[in-house]
């Protein structure tokens, strides 16, 4: 496959190209800056003292430099390391399995000769509209499937997402029918067509959907909150967000005037800076891993290259 070629091929440098370049650089640069600045504030805030932040608000540089927030996060480094390991395993395993199921399903739903595809699409899509709420789901996981305090309670709920399925389906729809028909004439079965013909053509789509599944696993704390009891099994986000959520919950609580003073004085944690430090701890690894995914977004697909 053509290595680092821009998908646009060779373009002449006319006035229109220059105009577009000015717009593209200008616009993307501006958007990127708008996204970067607040993040820098969060970074600076995470290294500031709690007092300075409440007093002066956010800024681009740390105020009254302090690592107090990180000390709170890493109170118990072994727990953090274990939580990282749990999350990484879950993310990798879940993304792989999820991609397999979703690609396979999307492939079938995208096949035009499958007359029932609309009925099945509806069968899946319908579940995004209606939900029975938290109680029945909690009972399903906790009692019916008896997954309480099991890693499966973290893996299964995020394994399959209809959104990702339908996005994947739309990408597969973009593949010319002639390619698939050619494979069938060559005697390929459905599964082989999928693996050998379709999958190489949808690498950007696999990267995208894979990224979304991975992010969902990476960011998930809610399932852990509901189903995981043993501290050794906490994934990273739950370990961290437990602290933030507790602060938020506590703040909501003491806003209630009737709560007794013993309850009020039972919590004493840095609030703003801790939240920001957690954002950094959570985002860091993703930012480092992102370029590996990114290469699929900067490289075009040449359909001719995979034929035959």
């Amino acid at each position: 496959m053509a290595a680092e070629r821009s998908h646009l091929g060779k373009v002449r440098k006319g006035g229109d190209v220059i105009a577009l370049n000015i717009i593209a650089y200008g616009f993307c640069g501006l958007v990127a800056l708008l996204c970067l600045v607040p993040f820098l504030m969060v970074l600076a805030g995470s290294f500031s003292s709690e007092q300075a932040i409440t007093q002066n608000g956010f800024s681009l540089l740390p105020q009254d430099f302090s690592v107090e927030a990180y000390k709170t996060v890493f109170r118990d480094p072994m727990v953090v390391v274990r939580a990282y390991a749990t999350t990484i395993c879950l993310t990798i395993g879940g993304t792989f399995l999820g991609l397999c199921i979703q690609t396979m399903t999307a492939y079938v739903l995208a096949r035009k000769e499958f007359e029932w595809r609309n009925a099945f699409s509806f069968f899946f899509y319908f579940t995004t509209l209606f939900s029975g709420g938290l109680v029945p789901y909690y009972i399903l996981i906790n009692q019916t499937l008896n997954l309480r305090d099991s890693y499966l309670a973290l893996l299964l709920p995020l394994l399959f997402s209809v959104y990702n399925l339908l996005i994947m389906k739309s990408y597969i729809l973009g593949i010319p029918d002639s390619l698939i028909d050619a494979a069938k004439i060559d005697g390929c079965g459905e599964f082989r067509t999928l693996v050998q013909v379709v999958v190489p053509l949808i690498k950007p789509a696999l990267a995208t959907v894979g990224l979304f599944i991975a992010l969902a696993y990476w960011n998930d704390w809610y399932n852990a909150m509901l189903y995981i009891k043993t501290e050794e099994k906490y994934p990273l986000q739950y370990f961290l967000y437990q602290q933030v959520n507790n602060i938020e919950g506590y703040k909501k609580l003491i806003a209630n005037g009737s709560v007794s003073s013993a309850v009020v004085s039972s919590v004493n944690l840095p609030t703003q800076t801790l939240k920001m430090a957690l954002t950094i701890v959570v985002t860091g690894p993703i930012v480092l891993a992102y370029p590996f995914v990114q290469k699929y977004f900067v490289q075009g697909i040449t359909i001719g290259a995979v034929k035959g």
Binding site: L134, M225, L226, Q242, V244, I247, G249, V267
Partner: peptide, 9 residues
């Protein structure tokens, strides 16, 4: 039940 969880749990 943590302060952030008791409303739900």
């Amino acid at each position: 039940l943590g302060w952030g969880e008791h409303d739900t749990k």
